[in-house]
Design a protein around this nucleic acid. Structure first.
Lengths: 252, 252
DNA sequence: GCACCCCTTTGATCTGTGTCAATGCAACTT
DNA sequence: AAGTTGCATTGACACAGATCAAAGGGGTGC
């Protein structure tokens, strides 16, 4: 799949790795979206460098002082919140081109954990400096606001999912969402590796891992998908979509 | 409670109503937080005026073009998302000093509905102009980012609630959250009127209205609260809090 | 390359919450 | 003041998903 560089590097900032936004094939999905060449250059100067993480490494932890947001350059992350009484909720999965870390802005301290689910790489975007630059570049400022707002809207979607959907609907929504995001990145809409475990999927969807596993099996039995461990092939996208919109009857 | 003016005014912008931020007793909770007198004056000039809404009126609807965010000056709102297949999820309840409407920034179109649950009043904050001003006033810019980030963090809390808690825990968390927000506004922490129906509470908490009602009754039987329709009195906050942190045993 | 361990699958049973239904209460309308 | 209507409460029952349990498979690290 879209695994790439396999080097095992210390998790420190490695400025040498820096790749200009203007050279990055993710720029249409990421923060510099819509910037002129000149302004993109100014953003390049601000980006603090890249950082590589091996699978399982934390990008940040709840409680860490907030300094930067991160653009995922390659790889796959999860974010999760955990409470003192041991509850653990995965709040999202992030892939290339997406921004992580905005939870830390409000209190100057991160409120969730971000973990690499495969060997990954992020760009560091020092937030104070981003604010300074964005007060000079209107389109950058506006785009930052859009990114934050999009996160809010996305969260509302998850609430909808958790609040109103049954297990199979949740899983169908999850698969379709992944499919759509992979497509936007030029990967196959129908065939991909899941980077997360059944338990992590379950946490995200508010289900137990056994329920996730059973739902996968049922989808397979019905010819909707084929599952081999973490390898998924979607066989019938239209029919998967119909699971989300129950045909009359249960229209409440 | 904190119901106030009872006039029935057309839901149009009424500039005459405009009250300067500097005169507003909510300024410590709201957008102008931390601004100098001078900068607050500049913000005053930007605020497009106030708007009154009667109970049941929409502040905006999903699909409306986004132009402004709103600061709740008085009253109580709910926001909800509904899908074409009829699902309805309440995504939040907003009270005085809180900002509504940030869902619209990302697509220039509102993605949820905002409805007044009692006669209410909001300040209109034209967003493009807010962006312009915030690029000049660093602390305003930063505060706006904090407000948006706080919304993201709040949403994560709701996900945690929906994803991991059982019915009584959800309701306890809900009551404690209301209590804390009322306290911050100078109202009683222990006695208040719910502005929303059992069904709306249920939608927010991912429960059916009957389950909400039963949980209220059980809390009352156990002496935690007293309930009379929409009037709530919390009798034992500490014990209510213990419901959230199950004492060992069920530390999944 | 091998072994270990974690992840996944599947079955059997339990239970919390949803569903269906009926009654009660309170506020608003005229 | 009575009627209407919407909201809340309560009970009986059903069921989706959780829990408990056991076995198998595959990837990872040594």
């Amino acid at each position: 799949m879209h695994a790439n560089v396999k080097q095992n590097v210390v998790p420190l900032i490695t400025p040498g790795l820096k790749l200009a936004c203007s050279q990055c094939n993710l720029r249409e999905l990421c923060l510099p979206f819509g910037l002129s060449e000149h302004d993109m250059g100014r953003l390049d100067n601000l980006i603090g460098g890249a950082r590589k993480l091996k699978r399982g490494q934390h990008l940040y932890r709840a409680g860490d002082v907030f300094e930067s947001i991160f653009a995922v350059k390659a790889g796959f992350f999860k974010t999760d919140v955990l409470t003192e009484d041991g509850r653990d909720q995965v709040t999202g999965f992030q892939m290339a081109g997406e921004i992580v870390g905005m939870d830390g802005i409000s209190t100057e301290v991160h409120t969730c954990n971000a973990v690499a689910l495969e060997d990954s790489e992020v760009c560091l975007i020092p937030f104070t400096e981003l604010e300074m630059l964005s007060s000079e570049i209107r389109s950058l400022q506006h785009h930052l606001h859009k990114v934050m707002s999009r996160e809010i809207v996305r969260d509302h979607g998850v609430m909808m999912l958790l609040g109103t959907m049954r297990a199979e609907e949740r899983l169908a929504a999850f698969l379709l969402n992944l499919s759509q995001r992979f497509t936007a990145r030029g990967y196959s809409p129908t065939e991909f590796h899941l980077r997360m475990t059944r338990e992590e999927i379950g946490s995200y969807l508010g289900l137990k891992l056994e329920t996730v596993s059973r739902a996968f099996s049922r989808f397979q039995d019905e010819g909707l998908i084929s599952v081999q461990q973490k390898h998924i092939r979607i066989l019938d996208i239209p029919r998967l979509k119909t699971l989300l919109a129950p045909p009359d009857g249960r229209i409440r």
